[in-house]
Design a protein around this nucleic acid. Structure first.
Length: 361
DNA sequence: AGGTATGATTCACT
DNA sequence: AGTGAATCATACCT
């Protein structure tokens, strides 16, 4: 039992000499007239604590109760809390109150912008709308894709919120559990409310780092979704054969001036089931590629010229109009209807189209 | 796998 | 705003 005075000494030593801000009740104990009596009290308590594990459960329970009711218990408790505060906990204290994490803020902003967090938007995210506008207006095929996009986005949103709720619930449950545990333990070991508070903040920090991971993976999922659904370049599909033929037919029948008017573009777009912007793109590409390599397109040009001629001949023989979009045609177009036998038309048009081709360099 | 075709994008120009 | 030119990124073909 000679360990007891040593313990005593160490506690009083650290608490009083090393820490001038010690509570009044303990300061009195150092040199007061009843100092010996209080020393005796504390020694008594400590001895009871040291031997409590050797006792039977009932005995220990009774002793615990007796200890809790001891008149010196609150004082000892306070001192031990304070010592703990000034030694172990003060080291961790420095890293508290960190500023809001910029990365977390970025993630939050992005989730908000994409419509994952925050209030649900009825018409999809702003990003989706912007992407739709950028890709040349609302095409007929676009709307289907966007509804698919929205469905997938809301799926992500739902998962995100479910997980977030789960984490929050788990965090609250765990915090309550730990707080109860610490409160319970604070009866037998020195745990100050401040320490409980600190523990709670540690738990919250841990859980918020898990939340950050969730946010990060949600952001990644949204990015992948966006790139898959909204980046038109990635989603490039060749126009169907019929659409290409309609466009080519127009192009080669207006080879001298392959610049469809706005109305003509709209008509072509309608016929081909593509957007006006796509028609413009197509003509832009076609003009430049044709000009760059006329030789390569010669055969194609002849083929379409012939086809247009046949159409024209058929149309004239049936007394009806040709089936091509109305356009501001310039003089000398190859596809103008004329009352000639189709065979003659064919040869004339073939040669005229070749002539135009050669002039068009 | 590599080459070619093709639709989209970007930028400069008018 | 419309266009030409260059370029990108994917689809398609061999």
């Amino acid at each position: 039992m000679d360990e007891q005075p040593r313990l005593m000494h160490s506690h009083t030593g650290v608490g009083m000499a090393g820490h001038p801000g010690l509570p009044q009740h303990m300061q009195e104990g150092t040199g007061g007239t009843d100092g010996d009596g209080r020393k005796q009290d504390i020694g008594d308590i400590l001895q009871q604590i040291m031997t409590i594990t050797d006792q039977s459960l009932d005995e220990a329970q009774a002793r615990k109760h007796a200890l809790n009711c001891h008149r010196m218990k609150p004082a000892l408790f306070n001192v031990l809390c304070e010592i703990k505060e000034k030694t172990v906990l003060s080291i961790r204290g420095a890293q508290e109150e960190e500023p809001p994490d910029p990365q977390l803020m970025r993630l939050d902003n992005m989730l908000l912008a994409e419509g994952v967090s925050g209030p649900e938007k009825g018409g999809g995210s702003a990003a989706a709308a912007a992407a739709a506008a950028a890709s040349g207006g609302a095409g007929a095929d676009n709307s289907a894709e966007h509804s698919d996009y929205r469905a997938k986005l809301s799926q992500i949103r739902q998962i995100y919120h479910t997980e977030l709720e789960k984490y929050e619930q788990a965090c609250n449950e765990f915090t309550t559990h730990v707080m109860n545990l610490l409160r319970e333990q604070s009866r037998t070991r020195p745990i100050s409310p401040k320490e409980i508070e600190r523990m709670v903040s540690i738990i919250h920090r841990k859980f918020s780092s898990i939340q950050m991971q969730l946010k990060q993976s949600t952001c990644e999922a949204v990015m992948i979704l966006r790139s898959r659904f909204l980046d038109a370049r990635r989603k490039r599909r060749n126009f169907n054969k019929q659409a290409t033929e309609i466009l080519n037919e127009y192009f080669y029948s207006h080879l001298s001036n392959p610049y469809p008017s706005e109305e003509a573009k709209e008509e072509l777009a309608k016929k081909c089931a593509i957007t006006v912007a796509q028609v413009s793109n197509w003509f832009g590409n076609k003009r430049i590629r044709y000009k760059k390599n006329i030789g390569k397109f010669q055969e194609e040009a002849n083929m379409y010229a012939a086809r247009t001629a046949v159409n024209a001949a058929n149309a004239s023989s049936h007394g009806s109009q040709a089936n091509s979009p109305s356009t501001p045609n310039s003089a000398g177009e190859t596809g103008s209807p004329c009352p000639m036998p189709s065979r003659h038309i064919l040869t004339v048009i073939l040669s005229s189209s070749q002539l135009i081709n050669t002039l068009h360099v």
